[in-house]
Structures are given as C-alpha cells and as structure tokens.
Design a protein around this nucleic acid. Structure first.
Length: 266
DNA sequence: TTCCAGGTCGTTT
DNA sequence: AAACGACATGGA
C-alpha cells in the first residue's frame, strides 16, 4: 500500500544522493532503500512524498524531517558561500542511519568512490532476503556475523572490517550513542581503520551528532577555497568548521560537500 | 601505463 | 607535530 506524506523544506534527491548513504537504488522513478531489516521505496513530487514498505513514524525520522529546518538554515547561513550552497542544495537533509551500517559503509569509503562503496556494501549484504513487490534486497549482517567472501573486492579495507566485526557488539554501539561527542569519537577511533574523518561520518550520519564536521578531500578543498586557505591538515579544518558553524556544523559540512561536488567544477 | 579515488597507519623528520 | 609512503582495486 502506497502512503502519502506532505513535506516542506525537503529534497529526497539531494538527501539520498549527497554521499551520506549508500544503500539505495533508483528504479523507474522510485528510490528503493534498505535499512536494517526494512526494504521500502519512496518518491517525491514537490510537497508530496509517496512511500511504501515502512511506517510514517520511521520514515520521518530516517529522512530527518523531525528537525526545525528553517532554524538550522538561519543558524549556519553566516556568509555568502554558505548561503549559496544552501540555495543550490535546498531541501538537503541529514539522514538518521543505523550506526552499524553507517560504520561499515564509511570504513569502506577510504580512498574509494561512491559507486564502489555501494557495490562493496552490496556484496557484504548476505543476510535475510527482503522483498517489496517483485524487488529483492538483502540485509547487511549485524556485528559478529559479517562475512566477506574473497570476491567482495574490499582491498586493504577487508582486514579492518574483519577486526571491526570481531570487536563490535550491539551494546558497544548503543554505548557510543550515550557518550558526549568527543568521548564517542575517541571510542570509535580505537577501531583500526577508523580515523578522525570516518569517526565523524559515523557520528554525524549514524548517531545524529550534528556538531561533527567530517573533512574529506572535497570539504578540505571547499574550505581552503572559501574559509581557511592557510589550514592544511584535515583535523585543523575540522576543528575550524566545528567552531565556526557550531551545533549545526554537520549540516554545514553536508551542504558544502554536496555543493562543491555537484555544482562546481573540480 | 600512470594516476587518482569521501583515509588510515606506521615510520621518519 | 607535521610530512611521507604503503595499502588493494578499479576506472579514466
């Protein structure tokens, strides 16, 4: 059964296709999305969001519709650069992903690209089959159950994931979410293969720590071009971003990342 | 063939 | 504290 939801200040395309989430595919105008044991589809026409296969309560939270968007935009729109990014990425929302799936996805992301990350996640998704009409997807196994066949082609990331699968438990994942930002980050970084950038991605996209400011090569580029040309190291730029954009730094980062990649030349 | 890709880690200045 | 180079693999 297809259900409707009225939305404002929201772009499904910008939200799903801004590099924060990898478990979706676009087929015949519908986005098919897999999250834990849920497999659902959705599409948007202006203020109408149609969805099927999950509850309204879940989708509102997953899509980040339960925040005051106007207040967030007002908070970070401190300069012309950010204002321009916001206009171009109008309706972009930070998703609320599952922490484990987010962790696996971003460990795969290092020195990779979105297409390959998506394929790698697909090959790791060996769990129960999920069906929606004629479409099929599979669960990503929970911590302790991840198995990477040799043809998964994970490269040097395979050893990281194998160790993370050994060490991580559901209770450890829950504990991270209850810690303050800096402690949570420190704890995540005890995992081999998780440095500052990936920890920030997991905290931002998986745990909702909106003060996190992950700095990859694109954010580094856009920040050096517009904010802090003198800062060279990603961790310095990250700390600049957190100080400058404050509690909504994560949103600022996502606008800048998507804007720099999708609307400006390399 | 060579270079680079949503980084991290160990080693050397 | 900052600056390398290696790491697997695939696509341009």
């Amino acid at each position: 059964m297809i259900k409707n939801l009225s939305v404002s200040n929201f772009s499904l395309q910008h939200s799903l296709e801004s590099g924060q989430f990898f478990r979706y595919s676009l087929v015949d105008g519908w986005y098919y999305v897999t999250v834990r044991d849920m497999f659902f589809r959705l599409r948007q026409q202006n203020n109408l969001l149609e969805f099927e296969g999950c509850s309204e309560l879940f989708i509102k939270h997953f899509l980040g519709l339960d925040i005051d968007y106007a207040a967030m935009v007002e908070f970070i729109a401190k300069d012309d650069c950010m204002k321009q990014a916001i206009v171009c990425c109008q309706g972009l929302r930070l998703l609320n992903q599952d922490p484990w799936e987010c962790l696996v996805g971003f460990v795969l992301s290092s020195v990779s690209n979105i297409k390959r990350i998506t394929a790698n996640l697909q090959s790791l998704s060996t769990g129960d089959e999920l069906r929606l009409g004629t479409h099929v997807s599979c669960m990503l196994p929970r911590p302790g159950s991840l198995t990477a066949s040799s043809n998964a082609r994970l490269g040097f990331r395979a050893k990281y994931l194998s160790e993370i699968n050994e060490l991580v438990t559901e209770s450890w994942l829950r504990k991270i979410g209850k810690l303050p930002y800096l402690s949570a980050k420190e704890e995540l970084m005890t995992l081999s293969g998780v440095g500052e950038k990936i920890a920030d991605c997991v905290l931002l996209f998986g745990y909702g720590f909106h003060e996190a400011f992950p700095v990859d090569v694109w954010v580094q580029r856009v920040m050096q071009e517009n904010y802090c040309p003198k800062l060279k190291k990603p961790e310095h730029i990250a700390s600049f971003g957190r100080n400058y954009f404050g509690t909504h730094a994560g949103y600022a980062q996502q606008f800048l990342y998507h804007w720099r990649r999708s609307f400006l030349s390399s």
